[in-house]
Design a protein around this nucleic acid. Structure first.
Length: 474
DNA sequence: CGGGACTTGGA
DNA sequence: CCAAGTCCC
């Protein structure tokens, strides 16, 4: 007997309950399908996926079968060819995926075969965390503190199984190149040098974070994670996105050198909690990518300004911390969390552009672009999310820059035209006296743009617009 | 320079 | 009461 494991966002052998289940029962075959669906992968994520599949195939000694198309067309035939009786897969939470999985299960059952959807990518399943009245939480803090932390603690990670590869007499599988994941994007060149894109790479990253010395990594996570020039954030997001490490591995590994009540560990784990919260929101609000969770936002008067949008995307807004972050994103496929909030607030509040624009750009540019986290994050910063993010919370890119990049190391790295600006005016060069600008060889409007909007006026415009929202959430 | 104002869900 | 913030006095 043969079992087919269908890899999706669980591209790992360790701590993979569905794969373990398969391997305990029979010889195992493996497939990845590049599914064609409405919300296809962004450019950066495609590059990540390409390298991930290459690495996974090596781990599987070349036994990973690759296809492109509709899973419901491909799988029944493939299982017939392999003489596989059962399909295993790790549970997923976005509507298109959930529907596909239900459809496949139904089809296979009609063919006398079976399918098992097994949980493995979340610490707590959405159904496990509910308020007293049984309805899902809408605010992070009670979700995490009352809900998650009082529920069953996350189990220990499972070891990678002993795999017994099934013989694969299949000749219609595609070579990796033919998935077309590297076609026509600038992400594939030098940017992948910064990352070891594999399960092993995820573990190295997690190890470096958990086992850091001095005030690196988790040791100063609480404060250090807010400073984009510091090395305190875990940078695990792309690995979590594609399942190269599991949340359980991150949860437990991070705690191996810490007391269980260490505040650094608590806060790191609460960030994993944000991921759980996003997935819970996605599960209970399948249209979260497009529809505001607060329906009173449905007819909000967003501005239309393609010119502003383009300048935001390219890091040409004239606000150095915003521009640094947007350039980091485009150049590297990654953006530090603190500055994600700053650029998000700037787009949605100061430019008053629809959060969909931000969601789409991040989706295309981030290695870690994740259906749940990306939508939830943008709704949160726009104030239309479930969390009670107050509409008056407008980040000030000058203050935020001065506070979180005090020596300008991060900003100068991505905005080299301000290399010689003194810290005092780095985040507001338009305030600098003429002689300071001259000494720094900065010509506003030429070597670096003037601000595309006035901070005070645009903030007030946003506050007025948001104050005009209907009170009712129905 | 510190406190209070701005909002809203949840215990 | 508390929450990834800012402004004004």
């Amino acid at each position: 007997m043969t079992i087919l494991h269908w890899f999706r966002d669980d591209l790992r052998l360790g701590d993979n309950p569905a794969l373990n289940h398969a391997s305990q029962l029979a010889k195992t075959a493996y497939v990845y399908i590049l599914e064609e669906e409405a919300s296809s992968l962004g450019g950066a994520a495609q590059v990540w996926l390409h390298h991930s599949l290459s690495a996974l195939n090596q781990q599987l000694q070349g036994n990973l079968l690759l296809y492109k198309g509709k899973a419901s067309d491909i799988l029944p035939e493939l299982m017939e060819t392999l003489n596989a009786e059962r399909l295993t897969m790790t549970r997923r939470y976005h509507l298109a995926g959930v529907k596909t999985d239900a459809e496949i299960t139904e089809t296979l059952s009609g063919l006398g075969k079976s399918a098992s959807v097994i949980s493995g990518n979340l610490l707590w399943e959405p159904e496990e965390i509910a308020k007293q009245d049984g309805t899902p939480y809408k605010v992070f803090t009670p979700f995490y503190r009352r809900g998650c932390l009082n529920a069953q603690p996350p189990r220990l990670p499972l070891p990678a199984p002993e795999l017994d590869h099934a013989a694969i007499g299949v000749n219609n599988a595609l070579p990796l190149e033919e998935l077309g994941l590297l076609d026509g994007s600038h992400w594939q060149t030098e940017i992948t040098n910064d990352w070891e894109i594999s399960e092993q790479g995820g573990h190295s990253r997690l190890e470096a974070f958990s086992n850091a010395s001095g005030s690196d990594g988790i040791n100063d996570y609480v404060d250090g994670r807010n400073f984009p020039a510091k090395t305190n954030v875990s940078r695990l997001s792309p690995y979590l996105r594609f399942g190269q490490i599991s949340a359980h591995q991150a949860w437990h590994e991070a705690g191996k050198n810490k007391r269980p009540d260490d505040r650094q560990l608590d806060i790191f784990r609460s960030e994993l909690g944000w991921r759980e919260f996003s997935y819970s929101l996605l599960h209970f609000n399948p249209d979260m990518k497009t529809d505001p969770l607060q329906t009173r936002f449905a007819s909000f008067g967003w501005a239309e300004n393609p010119e502003h949008l383009k300048k935001w995307q390219r890091g040409q807004t004239g606000y150095p911390i915003v521009d640094a972050a947007m350039r980091e994103l485009y150049q590297t496929g990654y953006m530090h969390n603190r500055v994600r909030m700053i650029v998000g607030s700037f787009l949605v509040k100061n430019l008053l552009l629809h959060w969909h624009h931000g969601e789409a750009w991040f989706w295309d540019c981030l290695f870690d672009a994740d259906r749940a986290n990306n939508s939830a994050g943008w709704q949160w910063i726009a104030g239309c999310g479930a969390d009670a993010a107050p509409y008056f919370r407008v980040f000030n890119p000058v203050t935020q820059g001065q506070k979180f990049d005090p020596d300008g190391r991060y900003t100068r790295a991505y905005v080299p035209e301000l290399q010689d600006m003194p810290n005092k005016y780095l985040f507001n060069p338009w305030d600098a006296p003429k002689d300071v600008l001259a000494r720094a060889r900065v010509q506003l409007g030429k070597s670096y743009p003037f601000p595309i909007v006035d901070l005070k006026a645009s903030r007030q415009r946003a506050l007025d617009a948001f104050a005009d929202l209907p009170k009712s959430k129905i």
